[in-house]
């Protein structure tokens, strides 16, 4: 059974249809990639699924429950976690605090416990701290735990975002271009990490421009162009699909139209 089900999802901004009638499903442990040229609506699609945009049409369901229009913090409670294409790091906080923020749902308690530093709060925080150190080790940032996050390199921040998203112990993880701006070694690490996560049963929805990475690790690929799904299937099928090739390389008519337009 699918964990995430997207049906007929669409949104318009000022009359322009950014995403139109997109449907697909992701099962536990499956890696589904959304690809398409720049401006195809991939990030917009992510923003609708993760509750940041309210979809204009269609529905999103998580484990059989309709979650269309549910705010992001409620989706997080239901096990949906994500990273961002343009990094959304808590710049002024330490690396460790960034990951600890990801433990918010498991370490939160009453505000009195927080103000008075009650033992219950300290226990929860200590548990979160131990978990955060583990996660930092996993993305090789444990030596930078006490640094201010804003001082880290781009590639390190990408990994930090993944660690923070994992702190929620999500059932489904949305990764928006996790390898963008990373070198070959870093990309390979992210590749391994994603494979590990899916092996542990987490459903992965991935937006990525690195085609080699996408073709290697995806179980299923959804191709968007101009906000619409133009193809989907296994990597080998999709990569030979004429519509996909046309979308990426352009066709003669299109070039003609662009020249006229």
């Amino acid at each position: 059974m699918s964990l995430l089900q997207v049906s007929g999802l669409g949104i318009s901004f000022g009359g322009v249809k950014a995403v139109e009638d997109v449907s697909f499903a992701v099962a536990p442990g499956e890696i589904v990639s959304v690809i398409g040229p720049n401006g195809a609506g991939k990030t917009t699609l992510f923003n609708m699924i993760s509750g940041i945009y309210l979809p204009g049409r269609g529905s999103v369901s998580l484990d059989g429950t309709d979650v269309t229009g549910v705010p992001p913090h409620r989706l997080a409670e239901m096990g949906l976690s994500r990273t961002f294409q343009n990094l959304q790091i808590f710049q002024e906080m330490t690396v460790l605090d960034n990951v600890l923020a990801g433990y918010h749902l498991s370490e939160r308690g009453s505000v009195w416990a927080d103000l008075l530093s009650l033992p219950g709060m300290r226990r929860r925080a200590a548990r979160a701290r131990a978990g955060a150190h583990q996660l930092l080790k996993r993305v090789r940032l444990d030596d930078k735990a006490d640094q201010i996050a804003g001082n880290l390199s781009y590639g390190a921040l990408k990994r930090l975002e993944i660690a923070r998203a994992l702190a929620l112990e999500p059932r489904i993880l949305l990764l928006d271009e996790p390898a963008a701006g990373c070198n070959a070694v870093e990309t390979e690490e992210i590749d391994h990490l994603i494979a590990e996560l899916s092996a542990s049963g987490i459903a992965i929805l991935l937006v990525e421009h690195d085609m080699k990475l996408v073709m290697r690790i995806s179980n299923h690929i959804v191709v968007l162009d101009h906000g619409e799904k133009i193809a989907e299937g296994e990597p080998s099928t999709v990569s030979r699909d004429p519509a996909v090739i046309a979308a990426y390389l352009g066709t003669q008519e299109e070039e003609q139209a662009d020249a006229d337009g």
Binding site: S50, G51, I52, P71, P72, H73, L75, A76, E77, S81, R82, F84, Q88, I89, F90, Q91, E92, M93, D97, A101, G102, H104, L105, R164, A165, A167, L168
Partner: peptide
């Protein structure tokens, strides 16, 4: 402090 840094990111971690 997280929402101070990024409200969107804070919301996606459940804040």
């Amino acid at each position: 402090r997280a929402l101070h840094g990024s409200e969107v990111a804070a919301a996606t971690v459940g804040v």
